[in-house]
Simulated scan of single mutants.
Amino acid sequence: MKEPAVYILASQRNGTLYIGVTSNLVKRIYEHKNDLVEGFTKKYAVHTLVYFEPHMSMEAAITREKRLKEWRRAWKIRLIEEQNPNWRDLYFDLV
Rank of each mutant, 00 (worst) to 15 (best):
N14T: 01
Q12P: 00
I77G: 05
H32G: 04
R78V: 07
E31N: 15
L25C: 09
D93K: 04
T48P: 00
T41S: 15
E53H: 06
V26I: 15
K76H: 08
L49F: 09
N24S: 14
M1K: 09
Y30V: 06
F52E: 04
R28K: 14
D89R: 03
I80M: 02
F92S: 01
G20I: 07
M58P: 06
R67M: 12
H55I: 00
Y91F: 15
D35T: 06
D93P: 00
V50N: 02
F52I: 03
M1F: 08
E65A: 05
G15K: 07
L36M: 04
R78D: 13
D93L: 10
L49A: 10
E31W: 12
P85Y: 08
A74M: 10
S57K: 06
I80V: 12
A60D: 14
K76Q: 13
M56T: 11
N86E: 11
V37F: 10
K43D: 13
P85N: 06
T48L: 07
W71Q: 13
A61G: 03
T41I: 01
N86Q: 04
V95D: 01
L49I: 07
R73S: 09
L94Y: 05
H32T: 01
E59L: 12
K69I: 13
L90R: 11
K76W: 06
N86D: 03
A60K: 12
N14Q: 09
W75A: 14
T22K: 02
D93A: 02
K33D: 05
T22F: 08
M56I: 08
K27P: 02
E82N: 08
K27Q: 15
M56S: 12
V95N: 09
L17Y: 03
D93E: 15
R64C: 05
N84F: 00
E38T: 14
E82G: 00
V95K: 14
Y44D: 07
Q12H: 12
S11P: 01
E65S: 04
K2T: 11
I77R: 11
I8T: 07
N14H: 15
E81C: 02
D89K: 08
N34E: 14
W87R: 01
D89Q: 01
Y91I: 01
I62H: 10
E65C: 03
L25H: 09
R64T: 13
K66T: 03
R73A: 04
